[in-house]
Design a protein around this nucleic acid. Sequence first.
DNA 1: TATTGTTATACTCTATAACTATA
DNA 2: TATAGTTATAGAGTATAACAATA
Lengths: 152, 152
Amino acid sequence: MNTTAPRGNADELLDLTGLNGKVGYLLRRAQIAVHGEFTDLLRELKLRPGQFAVLRLIGNNPKLTQSKVCVALGIQRANLVGVIDELERRGLLGRTTSDADRRSNCLQLTSDGHRVLARSTELQERHEAAIGRSLGAGGYAELLRLLGKLVD
Amino acid sequence: MNTTAPRGNADELLDLTGLNGKVGYLLRRAQIAVHGEFTDLLRELKLRPGQFAVLRLIGNNPKLTQSKVCVALGIQRANLVGVIDELERRGLLGRTTSDADRRSNCLQLTSDGHRVLARSTELQERHEAAIGRSLGAGGYAELLRLLGKLVD
DNA sequence: TATTGTTATACTCTATAACTATA
DNA sequence: TATAGTTATAGAGTATAACAATA
């Protein structure tokens, strides 16, 4: 994450009406902060949060096709291609043409992919634990509940 | 649905462990959903959420300089230039060289800028009200509180 | 020397259309 | 006809470096 960018939480003399008290704006600022922290944590693996989500999903669901990954993660088919290309180039997963439907690629993690997924999952759990400490256990659970409603 | 499909994973049957139960992931999905809804609402004004934030901040704080906008909103000076260029080209605000410090531009909304800000603020209120209905009044307030902690 | 606004540049993420090979 | 993967491309958003004018 960028460390020299202004964070914008210092100037208390400005009138932030219409921004600070709105879910739309605070959700964006919070997401940027949390995403940036996770990006920093994953740097040791040269993995970005979006790549982690793909590894996690395929690790959970071997032989998943690219289309199904896209539906599950809410991304475009065309944009997944490059992500899979890079993870495959790095030897973290493999494409195999499906026997049942030769249009589809079955995706599977390699042993290196499983190792990277295990390490990144540790980092994610550390990250979530830090969030939990700043929100309190009740706040963490309540935030999950409320965010879940927004995603629907 | 083909009943002979062997290990095809239906979308509802996917294992989303490590994604759905994590604040990092749900925060991202929720932010994308909410940001997209606000983007749709603002379309009638040909205004994007980031431009709205700039108009809102300058409307609240006349004569603000570009650097101060950047600190308040957490964006880069270099990236604000184009945003201000476009809003100025559309006649929504004006730059004036500061008397006190001739390096700085004082930013001020035009009457058109105030009109667009007023209308977009109405749209934002409608958007936030819809969020409030889906979360409940208590949930909405609690979400604001929790997101505020994450932004710190 | 430091800061403000600016230009240039690059990289990521996202969105759409069109192609191919399969179904 | 429809779908899976792919290519190409364009638009946002964001990051860094460097420069001129000014402090």
